[in-house]
C-alpha cells in the first residue's frame, strides 16, 4: 500500500468518525452516548496522523531529488504499508456514505424478550395521570411483580417500534437496548392485541392490561389491549427504554 493511499485511508477514517459524531447523531445507531468524546478524539487523531504523514511525505519528495534512491534504500517499510489496511476502507466509506440504520424489527423478531430484571417488591403508587406514560420494562415489572396490582384498570401509554408477531391477532411493541455497542443488543417486547401496523414504524400505544393469568404474579401475561395506536417520531437515541414522547398531532 502506497503512502498517498495510507494518508487517504487515515483521513477518510477520521472524517468518517467525525461525521457520525460531530455532524449528526449517527453514532447512536452503533454505540452508547458515552463513546462520543472518545470517537471525536479518535477522529481528530486519525486526521492529524494523516496530515502529519502527508506533510512529511511532501517534504521528503521536495527534499529528495532522487526519490527512488531514498525509497529503495531502507525506507520501503513506509511506502509498502500493511496490505490488510485496505479493509479499513469499508467502514470508513460506509460511515461517510452508506451508514446502515439502527437495529430494528429484524433483530428483535429473532430474539426472545429480555428476561425480567432483578425481583422488586417496593413499588411506589402510580401517578394519577391518564393515560399513564410508562416504559416497557416498568410495565412488565408492574404486571408480573407488583402485588398491589396498581396497574389494574389503568390506561397506559408506551412507545416503541413494531415487530410482527407469529399470531395474527397480536404484534410486539419493541425496544432494543444495548449495553456497549449494537453487537450486544437485547430486545424488550410487549405483546399488543390489535391490528398490526407496518413493522419497524415507531408508534405510541395507549391501552389497558390484557387480562390473562393472575396479575402481580409470574403467570400474568405481559400484554396490552390496544385502544389507540398512533405513529410517533423515532427518538434520537433509539437504543433505550424511555417514556413515550408525546405523539405529534
Amino acid at each position: 500500500m502506497r503512502r498517498p493511499l495510507q494518508i487517504t485511508l487515515l483521513a477518510l477514517s477520521g472524517i468518517g468518525l467525525l461525521r457520525i459524531t460531530l455532524f449528526g447523531d449517527l453514532y447512536l445507531r452503533y454505540v452508547k452516548e458515552g463513546m462520543r468524546p472518545l470517537l471525536i478524539a479518535s477522529g481528530v487523531v486519525l486526521i492529524l496522523l494523516g496530515v502529519a504523514d502527508a506533510v512529511s511525505y511532501g517534504r521528503r519528495r521536495a527534499d529528495d531529488g532522487h526519490p527512488h534512491h531514498h525509497d529503495g534504500g531502507h525506507g520501503h517499510d513506509h511506502t509498502g504499508g500493511p496490505r490488510a489496511a485496505w479493509l479499513l476502507l469499508v467502514p470508513a466509506l460506509s460511515l461517510l456514505f452508506y451508514a446502515p440504520p439502527a437495529l430494528g424489527a429484524y433483530t428483535a423478531s429473532r430474539e426472545p424478550s429480555r428476561a425480567a430484571v432483578t425481583p422488586r417488591h417496593d413499588f411506589d403508587p402510580l401517578p394519577a395521570t391518564s393515560p399513564l406514560p410508562i416504559t416497557l420494562s416498568d410495565f412488565a415489572l408492574r404486571v408480573q411483580q407488583d402485588r398491589s396490582r396498581a396497574i389494574k384498570g389503568r390506561t397506559v401509554q408506551l412507545s416503541g417500534f413494531v415487530t410482527a408477531g407469529k399470531q395474527a391477532d397480536s404484534w410486539f411493541l419493541t425496544r432494543i437496548i444495548i449495553s456497549c455497542c449494537a453487537a450486544d443488543a437485547q430486545s424488550v417486547k410487549l405483546r399488543i392485541y390489535g391490528p398490526a401496523p407496518r413493522p419497524d414504524t415507531w408508534v405510541a400505544v395507549t391501552g389497558t392490561w390484557h387480562p390473562a393469568g393472575a396479575l402481580g404474579t409470574r403467570s400474568a401475561a405481559v400484554a396490552l389491549d390496544a385502544r389507540s395506536v398512533a405513529e410517533a417520531a423515532r427518538p434520537v437515541n433509539s437504543y433505550s427504554d424511555d417514556l413515550p414522547l408525546v405523539p405529534t398531532r
Partner: peptide, 13 residues
Amino acid sequence: RTVCLAVTVQALP
C-alpha cells in the same frame, strides 16, 4: 452491516 460497523466503531478508539 450495523453490527459489523458497531463492533468496528466501538473498538477503534
